[in-house]
């Protein structure tokens, strides 16, 4: 029995148990009906494979991709789909190979560059991965914060990671998840003034200033600026006092206030 035939039998066995949800079953039924009418339509097999892949039924997905590949090896969506599947299954080298083919077929598809960047990163080929991220970013109108964090994580040097985030702030604005990562990186580099600048930005944009003032005080302590830290903790208490009474009385805020009192009086 060929590999494809074996896979098909296994896939059928697994599919009967894994695809109980009616919506998935409806979509599969539609495709199966369409395939009965046009059994040599590779794109339908590819689509069915993608549906299985979405639901992490890897075996059924691969069986359908293999059939599609037999029928139309050059089908544009197939290389990307097989690359994505290989990556999800941890077959990283195969993923790189398929995704390379996909890029040759569709060099303006940012998703393929992202997938290959992830595969290359897992192979430890960091410069190549970074190049793919850069290419993807150039093709995207608005890269998601997740992508910027992924790329920043590849840099061994915090300074390089920090530089890689700069573009995000230009394109996306002061995104919280990225600001917090940048803040951690600034502190790890002992760039306390830059860290304070970032905290000030977050404070000015926040309705609840006390949390960010507490963070500011903590950074000042790290920087050895104790007197300023104490003043900042007091400022945080003042911000709490300005909250509506019901919010100032919330247990978390009361705990924070107690902590601020301790810090304002006991910081060295």
């Amino acid at each position: 029995m060929s590999r494809r035939a074996t896979l098909f039998v296994l896939a059928l066995l697994s599919a009967t148990t894994s695809c109980a949800h009616p919506e998935i079953q409806d979509a599969l039924d539609r495709l199966t009906t369409a395939l009965a009418a046009t059994p040599n339509d590779a794109s339908l097999y590819a689509e069915r494979g993608e549906l299985y892949a979405q639901h992490e039924d890897w075996l059924s997905a691969e069986a359908n991709y293999l059939r599609a590949a037999e029928l139309a090896p050059g089908l544009p969506r197939l290389a990307r789909a097989r690359g994505s599947l290989a990556l999800a299954r941890g077959q990283v080298s195969a993923a790189c190979r398929f995704l390379g083919q996909a890029i040759a077929l569709a060099p303006s598809d940012p998703t393929v560059f992202i997938l290959r960047a992830r595969a290359l990163a897992r192979l430890g080929l960091t410069p190549d991965a970074l190049a793919d991220y850069t290419q993807a970013f150039s093709l995207l109108a608005a890269p998601s914060p997740e992508l910027y964090l992924e790329r920043a994580a590849l840099f061994a040097s915090p300074a390089d990671a920090l530089r890689s985030l700069a573009d995000a702030f230009v394109r996306l604005g002061p995104v919280m998840s990225l600001q917090l990562r940048a803040l951690d990186l600034e502190i790890s580099l002992s760039r306390f003034d830059d860290a304070l600048t970032r905290v000030d930005l977050l404070t000015s944009a926040s309705e609840r200033r006390e949390l960010w003032l507490k963070r500011r005080g903590d950074i000042l302590v790290l920087a050895g600026r104790q007197a300023e830290a104490r003043a900042t903790y007091v400022a945080a208490q003042t911000a709490i006092a300005a909250l509506p009474a019901w919010l100032a009385a919330s247990p978390d805020t009361v705990r924070l206030s107690t902590e601020l009192t301790r810090l304002a009086t006991t910081s060295p």
Partner: peptide
């Protein structure tokens, strides 16, 4: 530790 989780924590803490 994803971006959505980081954002959510900050967003919850910020609202009045």
């Amino acid at each position: 530790d994803g971006a959505m989780m980081t954002w959510l924590k900050a967003d919850l803490a910020a609202t009045k």
